[in-house]
Amino acid sequence: MRKWQCAVCGFIYDEAEGLPEEGIAPGTRWEDIPDDWTCPDCGASKDDFEMVPTD
């Protein structure tokens, strides 16, 4: 499971946790999130997210 971070505000999408609040189930892979989805904190586009390197 990977994490993706919004380049604008720093919000992190964690695939393991999903965003149940927005109807995105835990375990939802990044590529399965619709392209028109936007950052819940700042509204940036999905393609403004960068993968967080795993340690």
Partner: peptide, 10 residues
């Protein structure tokens, strides 16, 4: 606010 401007930028 931030959200309106991000939508405007898009």
């Amino acid at each position: 606010f931030v959200m309106p401007l991000m939508n405007a930028a898009r």
